[in-house]
Design a protein around this nucleic acid. Structure first.
Length: 712
RNA sequence: GGACAAGUAGCUCAGUUGGUCAGAGCAUUCGGCUUACAUCCGAAAGGUCACAGGUUCGAGCCCUGUCUUGUCCACCA
């Protein structure tokens, strides 16, 4: 054994040993308990980042622990095509080459992205191996695998047939830069300083009222104003008419309680096609929906002289014109308001009237709520239960269609002859079910990525091996970051329950974010990125993983510093040297040894065994409780400060006699530490197996499948 | 405007139902190249556990209020 442990010499070999040994692939055994984690499939558009390393660290600990406990343990890996995310990344690359997505047709673009994603997927899987993920590659799935897609289609058809999916022309959150509609979850709210314009609206008699608005550029499309009917001052305006300051068309003032008399001037201009409040009010009062802004973010032809201008430009022009007419009473330049921006490109989201596919969430929300309240699904950290229920409360019908290329195209066909809509489970119908025409065209929209990944737990297990679904579903733990709780966890629960009648997982373990040394969020722009692969190469995967787990409770954010990782590298070296000492030192009594009393020796032996027992007991309890950081500290403390610092030192002059105890303590320590630091522990195990003089120890063929220690 | 966290040694964090709970790692100081490891060993220093009340025989741990920080939610033009 070398003087220091060098991860580079061992990690790759050890991983190959595991993978070739088939240890990651569980056998379905009715006499054993299954333990299943479906890996949150990393996006196949970028290399892994430090956040991925955290889920690997946490999930692999659980997986290896359960495997050693003897459960039929499945960790199912995957890759996510990550719809808009990937297209966004890919378009950036196109832009670097001076191209855009509009230079290609739908199929060509799809093929190009496909190729790009396949390469990334390979990289990503290689990185998971570097990190030591003991997942079952024979069951690996990709979200665009044909059999997965088939299941997504099936679920969609079922939802459609049950009346839970509908196509509707509604107000949606539309990003004119990404060129697609989103659900409300993809909209970020940011506070912006936007001027509030006070615009005068005159009536035929020359009297005027003032309306406050942040969006003067849509004034030409407005047909109504609104006040609160309970508003004593302005209620009497209801039914009266004023003139549109831009078009001079008559506008009626209606009454609706959504208007806050205290805000602005207590009078609101209604733009039903571009504002959620106004949309609702317009539906109630049967008002017209006039589209003022196109999906390309420019003013429509209705805007006449403003037509074709961007929203920003149009606003300037309109304000200028209104000012010339003397219609602007004042401008509050310091007004701050919250506007929706695209979570991806950060540009302003335009509420737009658009025909999209929606999922009725109400019945799904009901069962999803029930599953958690009844305890069928538990959150390891209870506080997230509240967050989850809150999300369910505010959920609206889910827009599941996206106007992007990269994704699963919706299995919907339109008849060119009679415009019949036909939904299938994937196959193109031969004829129109209504008029028998064969002239059918497929919907160009793709599914929201989360619609398919929401089906991931059952879709994967239904397409891996026969019997998998029956045996491994519902899965044991869903371990993922808190920022995708509403996007993913909530949807998996809703869709899992709908499609299978069972919960997709019994427990949700939420982990926090990885931050930098100062607790700052990690981002490329801040330049504080920690590359997990670089860290693994520098200090070893074990050190990285232990460093991550060590930091804080799983559910809390951790501040990761290189110091932290280095400390764990040192620890890996420590246990390596303990093994080195025990097996390579002369076990003959030292010349200068002092005779110790039998009693003292016995006491020392009993002490280390007792400490070991306590460590095993505590570690096991802590692991069951997902308190990985404490479990890690427990083992660290035993190995370093009890076994090495104390017992090993105390027995130096009687090593021969203490050898069985030393070997036993080392063996059990390796087992305890293995889930956290799999490479160094397995390396030692494999080395010691070959070593003479350790008969009766390290007998299992590999540590990864050695039996978890029990207290004797 | 709500919700949820967190405020404990210089730094990053543990402290599970109130009674060796005042801890760990890193950093610091002092002394050691002791034949497993200098990626090391030995020793030390360092906190009125945000603040103010309260419950209790006893409170970082429970209750009330305040302050600070962070995150999330929210259709007020």
């Amino acid at each position: 054994m070398d003087k220091t442990y060098d991860p580079k010499l061992h990690e790759e070999k050890i991983y190959t040993l595991w993978e070739k040994g088939g240890y990651f692939t569980p056998k379905i055994d009715k006499n054993k308990k299954p333990f299943t984690i479906i890996m949150p499939p990393p996006n196949a558009n970028d290399p892994l980042h430090i956040g991925h390393a955290r889920f690997v660290a946490v999930e692999d600990v659980l997986i290896r622990y359960h495997r050693m406990k003897g459960d039929s343990t499945l960790w199912l890996p995957g890759a996510d095509h990550a719809g808009i995310e990937t297209q966004f990344v890919f378009e950036k690359r196109l832009k670097e080459d001076g191209k855009s997505r509009f230079d290609f047709d739908q199929n060509t673009l799809y093929q190009m992205i496909w190729k790009y994603v396949q390469e990334n997927k390979k990289t990503m899987e290689g990185q998971l191996r570097i990190l030591g993920a003991s997942c079952d590659w024979t069951r690996g799935k990709f979200t665009l695998d044909p059999d997965i897609v088939k299941i997504v289609y099936k679920t969609f058809k079922k939802l459609y047939d049950n009346g839970l999916v509908y196509k509707g022309n509604k107000l949606v959150n539309y990003c004119t830069y990404c060129g697609t509609a989103y659900s409300e979850l993809e909209v970020d709210r940011v506070e912006k300083n936007i001027p509030l314009y006070y615009v005068k609206y005159s009536n035929a008699d020359g009297e005027f009222i003032t309306v406050a608005t942040t969006r003067p550029e849509t004034i030409f499309a407005d047909t109504h104003l609104a006040v609160n009917p309970k508003d004593k001052k302005r209620g009497k305006l209801i039914g009266t008419k004023v003139l549109n300051p831009l078009t001079n068309e008559e506008m009626e003032i209606i009454g609706d309680e959504f208007v806050d008399p205290e805000f602005g001037t207590g009078i609101v201009k209604l733009t039903p096609a571009h504002d959620f409040n106004d949309f609702e009010a317009a539906q109630k009062h049967d008002l017209p929906f006039i589209v003022a802004i196109n999906q390309d973010g420019k003013i429509t032809t209705i805007g006449k002289k403003y037509a074709g201008l961007t929203v920003k430009k149009a606003r300037e022009e309109v304000v200028k014109d209104l000012q010339e007419k003397g219609s602007i009473e004042k401008i509050d330049e310091n007004y701050k308001t919250v506007v929706g921006v695209c979570y991806r490109c950060k540009n302003t989201i335009e509420p737009m009237l658009s025909t999209q596919w929606f999922l009725k969430v109400e019945p799904l929300v009901k069962t999803a709520r029930e599953a958690v309240i009844s305890g069928k699904i538990k959150f390891a950290a209870q506080r997230f239960e509240k967050t989850y229920l809150h999300w369910l409360d505010i959920l609206r019908d889910w827009n599941i269609s996206r106007q992007i290329v990269w994704g699963i195209r919706m299995p919907v066909w339109y008849c060119s002859a009679c415009s019949q809509t036909i939904v299938t489970d994937g196959e193109k119908p031969e004829f129109c079910s209504n008029c028998q025409s064969a002239d059918l065209e497929q919907e160009s929209y793709t599914f929201d990525t989360w619609f398919s990944s929401g089906q991931w737990p059952f879709a994967t297990l239904q397409t891996t091996q026969p019997g998998d679904f029956e045996y491994f579903y519902p899965t044991s733990v869903m371990e993922t970051a808190y920022d995708i709780l509403p996007f993913w966890v909530m949807r998996m629960i809703m869709l899992g329950l709908y499609a299978t009648g069972e919960v997709p997982f019994k427990e949700v373990l939420i982990h926090g974010l990885v931050r930098d040394k100062q607790g700052q969020k990690i981002s490329k722009s801040k330049g504080n990125v920690i590359d997990p692969i670089v860290m693994a190469e520098k200090y070893g995967s074990d050190a990285l993983r232990m460093g991550i787990v060590w930091g804080a409770l799983v559910e809390n954010d951790i501040s990761l510093s290189e110091d932290n990782i280095r400390a764990q590298r040192n620890f890996a070296n420590k246990i390596w040297n303990v093994a080195r000492y025990i097996t390579t030192q002369s076990i003959e009594p030292r010349a200068k040894s002092i005779e110790k009393s039998k009693d003292t020796s016995k006491q020392d032996d009993a002490w280390i065994k007792e400490e070991l027992g306590k460590t095993i007991e505590r570690t096991t309890v802590l692991l069951e409780d997902y308190r990985l950081n404490e479990a890690a500290e427990e083992i660290y403390d035993f190995v370093w400060h009890k076994l090495a610092d104390v017992y090993l030192e105390k027995t130096k002059d009687r090593q021969s006699e203490a050898q069985p105890t030393l070997l036993f303590a080392l063996q059990e320590s390796l087992k305890l530490l293995h889930p956290f630091m799999p490479f160094v522990t397995e390396t030692i195990w494999q080395t010691l197996k070959e070593t003479k003089g350790v008969e009766g120890f390290f007998e299992e063929e590999a540590l990864i499948v050695a039996k978890w220690p029990e207290v004797v």
